[in-house]
Design a protein around this nucleic acid. Structure first.
Lengths: 233, 233
DNA sequence: CATCGACAATTAGAATCTTCATATCGGCAT
DNA sequence: ATGCCGATATGAAGATTCTAATTGTCGATG
């Protein structure tokens, strides 16, 4: 997975590229909005660094077009306050912005923060990522059969529900934001749903486990959800 | 606190000095690397504006020597792309650079941006800035799981509480004013709450730790709060 | 057409944040 | 020491924000 930089100023591109590569990211560059759209591939780019003010096609328009096909997070670069207003006016979902002038260090920090928030960095290298079966305490999932178990009890989960729990199992102690859960549930990054929808899925999962007095998911108020701690002996 | 300018070109020095003084900074000048090192005092200079290409001792070397004794942020001035690469190759901590030709306005903007960042950080380059886990004595925080530990005991903190402690961990010996704590707790930097509110959060945090006879936060009368000293052996 | 799952909208309820009033403490001058 | 004043601690109530649970619509499926 790569990061796509779209900026008409080659100097800025250099800085950004260098900073990100130092931080061990792979980078693609585009010199204007059109080229950016051409180059962009939702399956390849996990994040976009996008200048707001560009000749030809400005950043907000690029954003809109990208949004039409993918929910890939975007970090805007902007210098003037009114540009920032414009960016904020967008439906800033998985987005952030940085005011110029920015330091390379700040950029990298933001990118990392975004990755963390969206649970993208773990995207391919979770512990036991390609396992067929994962366990955490009483909870066991089998992705070959799409079945969940709590101890010996089998639980029927729908695809979305299963994917959410499966995803959380990769880092069973981590708190997942709703945004992150969204990405776990829909491995294609193009879906954008309301946070309440996530609540709803969580509720359905809980309900199914309640039937056998199990509570696999706990709430972290104001942050998200987390798997219940394993208490086995 | 002053800003130190190191550049062999007297004309540039004039421009920079004038711009910065207009913006209400105090300025010291040095005409080459050696003189810069002589003049530099970590206790006096808050920031350095440093030309990369200078006769005798070039900017990167000056930087290295300064880094040997202080983490003072440096803004590099450079004209050629290969110089920029060289600068970026340094361990850019709290550093930035400006390409020549630059406008005085841009310089001032960068300097101010840097100051802003430093202040928000609590002054200087934060150690372990984007770490997932931080420890100080018995205290350990994990920001992926939003959990706090004192030794082996897990402590439940709310989001605001967690953010405050997490922020203080970055400089575990520093005293944080209530205002500073406010900034740590709310990533939206425009939230304004009463000082008493901070006291209240501190109290809540303390209460949770009291349950296990731990005292992670101490009061510095008239100034603010600070993490308790680490006493581990 | 009936059924089921996915999702959104709503509102009831819970957790958390904030403030306020009061008690206590710390530093300082007498 | 003693008393004063500003700073901090404490407890509790109110406001605010977040979550849980209910319900209804849409679309896909059989």
């Amino acid at each position: 997975m790569k990061i796509l930089i779209v900026d008409d100023d080659p100097h800025i591109r250099d800085v950004v590229r260098f900073a990100l590569e130092q931080a061990n990211f792979d980078v693609d560059e585009a010199a204007d909005g059109k080229q950016g759209l051409d180059l962009f591939d939702p399956a390849v780019h996990q994040l976009i660094v996008l200048d707001v003010m560009m000749p030809e096609m400005d950043g907000t328009e690029v954003c809109r077009k990208i949004r039409a096909e993918a929910a890939t997070p975007i970090i805007f670069l902007s210098s003037r306050d009114d540009e920032i207003d414009k960016v904020l006016g967008l439906e800033l979902g998985a987005d952030d912005y940085i005011a110029k002038p920015f330091s390379p260090r700040e950029l990298v920090a933001r990118v990392k923060a975004m990755m963390r928030r969206l649970e993208l960095d773990g995207g391919g290298k979770a512990p036991a990522d390609d396992a067929e079966i994962m366990e955490h305490g009483e909870l066991k999932l089998d992705r070959t059969s799409f079945e969940a178990f709590w101890g010996d009890h089998a639980i029927e989960l729908t695809k979305t529900e299963f994917m959410m729990v499966w995803g959380m199992m990769r880092y069973p102690t981590k708190v997942y934001s709703r945004e992150a859960l969204m990405r776990l549930a829909y491995d294609d990054h193009n879906v954008v749903v309301s946070d309440r929808t996530i609540d709803s899925h969580v509720r359905h999962i809980r309900k199914k486990f309640e039937a056998i007095d199990a509570a696999p998911i706990e709430t972290v108020h104001g942050v998200g959800y987390r798997l219940a701690k394993a208490v086995d002996g």
